[in-house]
């Protein structure tokens, strides 16, 4: 093992070493609460239960469990997706756990602790003629415009459609995932793209309505987003997340939402390649 790779490996390990018991930052300890904000239009990660109007979801459950182990409560707030990163920057939120993808473009001022495997996925209405993802070349594909998916679609189209002489995918913007599914139902778009973690829930809600095409066409991770200088908070949260993975409570929460297959073996930092 070369000296360099040894140092890098050691450094990575150190970054996640649970050996040193990291402490909760003073301000949070004093407040006795974590301030978290979510974009609650993203079932099953975070959404309002239509029956009870309560804030529920995989991220909510994970965060609640982490907070319980930290001995603090959570003050929840909601915000549009595009406001998540600014909320972190302005310290309105202590960290972001809201179905946000770990991307290098976002790592300028933040670090991600990856906790869920994900990737953009094509899906269509069940009766649609498309059989494989290649049938989508030249078709209208929609996604939420405030996410990173428009860029992913463009990249996929260039690599898979245009490179093979086929017409490019036509991207159609939507305001949020509900708006996108709405457009799909109305026939304004032929296919839609959402994070693979949202599709089991959507299919369960409207049984038989949607059909997934292929696999997630770009693999990545959802990450808990921390400010770059907030190392203490990041380390203590990572410790507890690792513990949850070890004792099975993490898997239990994922299974509750049908996302057991998206589990990660351990929390990783900035591991996504996009």
């Amino acid at each position: 093992m070369t000296r360099l790779s040894f140092s890098v490996g050691f450094a990575a390990l150190l970054a996640l070493a649970p050996a040193q018991a990291a402490e909760l930052p003073e301000s949070i300890k004093q407040a006795g609460a974590l301030r978290l904000t979510v974009n609650s239009t993203y079932a099953p990660m975070e959404y309002r239960d239509p029956a009870t109007n309560q804030l529920v979801g995989l991220d909510i459950d994970l965060a609640n469990e982490i907070a319980k182990r930290l001995g603090v409560k959570i003050i929840w707030s909601e915000t549009p997706f595009a406001e998540l990163i600014p909320s972190l920057q302005t310290k309105r939120a202590d960290f972001i756990i809201s179905g946000i993808s770990d991307r290098s473009s976002r790592r300028e001022t933040a670090d991600f602790i990856d906790y869920l495997a994900t990737g953009p996925q094509f899906f269509v209405l069940t009766e649609n003629a498309a059989k494989t993802v290649m049938d989508l070349c030249g078709k209208k594909v929609g996604t939420t415009r405030s996410t990173s998916f428009p860029i992913e679609i463009e990249k996929w189209s260039k690599q898979n459609c245009e490179a093979g002489g086929k017409p490019a995918v036509q991207y159609v913007p939507g305001e949020n995932s509900i708006d996108v599914r709405n457009q799909l139902k109305q026939g304004r778009i032929d296919a839609a793209v959402q994070g693979s973690e949202t599709l089991p829930y959507a299919q369960q809600q409207e049984a038989g309505k949607y059909r997934v095409l292929g696999e997630p066409f770009s693999s990545g991770y959802q990450g808990i987003m921390f400010r770059k200088d907030d190392t203490a908070l990041r380390e203590v949260v990572t410790q507890h997340l690792a513990a949850m993975i070890a004792d099975g409570s993490y898997k239990a929460i994922l299974d509750k939402y049908g996302l057991g297959a998206n589990a990660v073996a351990q929390p990783m930092m900035n591991a996504a390649t996009q």
Binding site: S146, P173, G174
Partner: peptide, 23 residues
């Protein structure tokens, strides 16, 4: 802007969705 008409606010939003420069 919420129905995707590409007027001023919509286009400004698209830019900050990509580069996070909201303000």
């Amino acid at each position: 802007s919420v129905i995707q008409y590409p007027e001023l606010l919509h286009n400004a939003e698209n830019i900050y969705y990509a580069n996070s420069r909201v303000i």
